[in-house]
């Protein structure tokens, strides 16, 4: 059904069915961790929306910054989980923080509805700016955060000169 993807880590950070342990049916505690993380992330998003409501026809800054910051954080998280450490992280770290908190915090559906709403309101320029800037800033954030974390985590776990062995993949 699934062949190994060449080059190690899979594309989907949430579901990696090439990892044998993840092919097992999800346990209740994994789903509970995702639900708890999702509740936290969505609560934070709800709070930001209350503090920073978008007026009709205006650029939805709250959702913009929620999505951009969530993308930066998943860049940090995924590098730390998959590349940064010598020991494997706790098995519930990725479900709770990655799938739950960050997945629940960021939202694609609100982004699309806001994009659509701005178009319907005749604010085509704001709509296109919102759609394009979110994609560009989100991708820039995940790339920059992953790159910086790789630099920092890489230098932290690099073995001392002259000693045999290198860092293993966590």
């Amino acid at each position: 059904m699934t062949r190994p993807v060449p080059g190690g880590e899979a594309i989907d950070p949430d579901v990696d069915l090439h990892v044998p342990a993840q092919r097992a049916e999800p346990q209740g505690r994994v789903l509970a961790a995702i639900a708890a993380g999702g509740a936290l992330g969505a609560s934070a998003r709800f709070g930001v929306g209350l503090l920073w409501p978008a007026g009709p026809g205006a650029f939805p800054w709250a959702t913009f910054w929620i999505n951009v910051s969530g993308c930066a954080l998943i860049g940090v998280l995924m590098v730390l989980i998959s590349e940064g450490g010598r020991s494997a992280p706790h098995p519930l770290v990725r479900p709770f923080l990655g799938v739950g908190v960050l997945g629940g915090f960021t939202t694609f559906s609100t982004y699309a509805v806001e994009f659509s709403g701005l178009l319907d309101a005749g604010r085509a320029q704001v709509a296109l700016a919102y759609a394009g800037l979110t994609v560009a800033a989100a991708l820039g954030a995940v790339w920059a955060a992953a790159s910086v974390t790789r630099l920092v985590a890489g230098s932290a776990v690099r073995p001392a000169p002259g000693r045999p062995g290198g860092r293993g993949r966590g």
């Binding site: 950070p13 860049g75 960050l102 997945g103 960021t106 694609f108 559906s109 995940v142």
Partner: peptide, 8 residues
């Protein structure tokens, strides 16, 4: 829905 997983 998720933006973080999508961008990663």
């Amino acid at each position: 829905s998720t933006y973080s997983t999508f961008s990663y």
